[in-house]
């Protein structure tokens, strides 16, 4: 029994991870729903083998019941996941309102910094080309060639 549940957890987590890696926020929300279910099932699994009594009967615990604490933990985590899902949906809606899509965008500042680096690289390349031309004009063996050697990346 527990093996079946373990396989179900694995399936839920795998599906969840796949969906979370998508760019649309609605898919990510669905992914989190799957991941949340996976985590909750895992908590239940931590309470012991499946198939044991869920309630304490008559005179008190006999030791054959399932551990109640993980169920309490799962209950708490369900509430938390619910709140987080609602918040994500609100964010997705806001994004759709503003841009007509709920795709997660790139970090613009990061892009700008990366572009600066590309420009510097391009400048360096240009400089190397110019120096290569100079070298062609003056011929090898004079000072320019040394500078060129130092500059080539």
């Amino acid at each position: 029994m527990s093996l079946t549940l373990a396989l179900v957890v694995a399936g839920l987590v795998a599906g969840g991870v796949f969906l979370v890696l998508q760019r649309e926020l609605t898919r990510i929300v669905l992914g989190f729903a799957l991941l949340g279910h996976g985590a909750n099932l895992l908590l239940l699994l931590a309470g012991g083998r499946a198939g044991r009594a869920a309630f304490i009967e008559g005179d008190g615990p006999t030791g054959g019941e399932v551990d109640p604490l993980p169920q309490a933990l799962a209950l708490t985590s369900i509430v938390i996941t619910f709140a987080a899902t609602t918040l994500l949906l609100a964010l997705a809606y806001r994004s759709w309102e503003q841009r007509g899509s709920d795709e997660v965008e790139d970090d613009l500042e990061d892009r700008r910094i990366a572009r600066l680096r590309d420009e510097t690289d391009a400048d360096l390349e240009e400089l190397t080309d110019v120096l290569a031309d100079l070298e062609g004009d003056t011929g090898p063996g004079d000072g320019v060639a040394d500078v060129h050697g130092e500059l080539r990346p």
Binding site: V20, L25, I28, F32, L35, G36, G38, A39, N40, L42, L43, L45, A46, G47, L69, P70, L73, S77, I80, T81, A84, L87, L88, L91, R94, S95, Q98, V104, E105, D107
Partner: peptide, 28 residues
């Protein structure tokens, strides 16, 4: 804010679920 908020929420939510799974393992 909505753009960066998405990344922030998603990453932290993922960490939280990982935490929950870690708790399940610790309890088990």
């Amino acid at each position: 804010q909505v753009r960066t908020g998405m990344t922030y929420v998603v990453i932290n939510l993922l960490a939280s679920l990982l935490f929950l799974m870690a708790l399940a393992f610790v309890y088990a």
